[in-house]
Design a protein around this nucleic acid. Structure first.
Lengths: 186, 186
DNA sequence: TCCTAATCTTGTCATTGACAAGATGTCACT
DNA sequence: AGTGACATCTTGTCAATGACAAGATTAGGA
């Protein structure tokens, strides 16, 4: 179906999303160009509009897909809250394009039903992953603990992606994340 | 000097930075338009180029100014690491435009000397603020503790700005941050 | 005064997002 | 097989933008 001689592409929607991931990795979500995606997919400049309406539509689809992939990644670290945090950071780094779109609501339609559902699924997995965290001595608010855990993992991931962490942390995000996250898990 | 009848603006650089803060608060840093800033300042569309070269130049100046303001805000919470964290979150929320640019290196020139200096100043204040954190029972790596503290504050601030936190956290970022950050400070 | 540099303007070009209208392919139904 | 409705893709167009070039205006010192 990648035969460029056919009038119909055959799988353009998927091809555009894949091209978007590449493009975002290269230039970031802000500089993403629909026309560039069309060129990458070998179709005309107006073809993307049919599948996504506009740029926000495409990024909405990407974000929804990203939340599902994140839920999947967190599920893999079943039971171990520390490893769930590591998986969160790992997702942000290895699937950077998804992550960068997911947490920038100004790029997509935050009221999209499919997106809201996907985000809710990821949120449920995330809260479940944190539930097994060892609590302090004082009576704790589980909501607060989940927020703290989410914050530290999200913050470390964001700072890593922003490239502002000192060189000392090394180049292995999983190991670095585990070291930092352990500060909360003890 | 704000007299629009004069050929020279008089304080265009400052006016453009102020207009940029407004515009970013309205549409975000990605959708920022130099021509819109020029209109807001009452000058021609090419006037900004003389002061900042291009868009990245303007955002570089904004980011550098932001790091200095952050350092200033952190210094105000002198000595108390918990309040330093609260001040960090408060800065992100109340001076959102600065914060959103500062941690998106793809928007500006990360090799700018003035920016690097400002960021180093802010980093020094941040590390100093965390130094007084109560350590756990085990022998600790102060660098790790600083990273954990930075991560949790930065993560909470980022999640707050992204608007993905549950309604339960309320609408007061300072109080909410204090509650979450205490999880690390005990 | 004059002159040099800084500041701002006008004009231009390629790129982009969005929209409209038309061409082509696909598929269900007869 | 034939046909019509719909999905998919194309071509054409427009306003907005970033960047650049060249010229006008002003400020401030020799």
């Amino acid at each position: 179906m990648t035969d460029s001689r056919t009038y119909h592409h055959g799988d353009l929607r998927r091809a555009l999303l894949a091209a978007a991931l590449e493009a975002i990795d290269e230039v970031g979500p802000a500089a993403l160009s629909l026309r560039d995606l069309a060129r990458r997919a070998g179709v005309s400049h107006a073809a993307p509009a049919h599948h996504f309406g506009d740029k926000a539509g495409l990024l909405t689809a990407l974000a929804a897909q990203g939340f599902d992939l994140l839920a999947q990644a967190l599920t893999a670290a079943d039971g171990d809250p520390l490893e769930a945090g590591v998986a969160y950071v790992d997702f942000a780094v290895t699937r950077r394009a998804y992550f960068e779109v997911m947490f920038r609501p100004e790029f997509y339609r935050a009221d999209d039903a499919e997106l809201i559902a996907a985000r809710a699924r990821a949120g449920a997995v995330l809260r479940a992953g944190v539930a097994a965290l060892p609590t302090g001595s004082a009576p704790v608010d589980p909501g607060r603990d989940a927020l703290a855990a989410w914050s530290i993992a999200h913050g470390f991931a964001t700072l890593w992606l922003a490239g502002v962490l000192p060189d000392r942390v090394g180049d292995n995000p999983r190991d670095a994340a585990r070291t930092v996250l352990r500060r909360l898990a003890t």
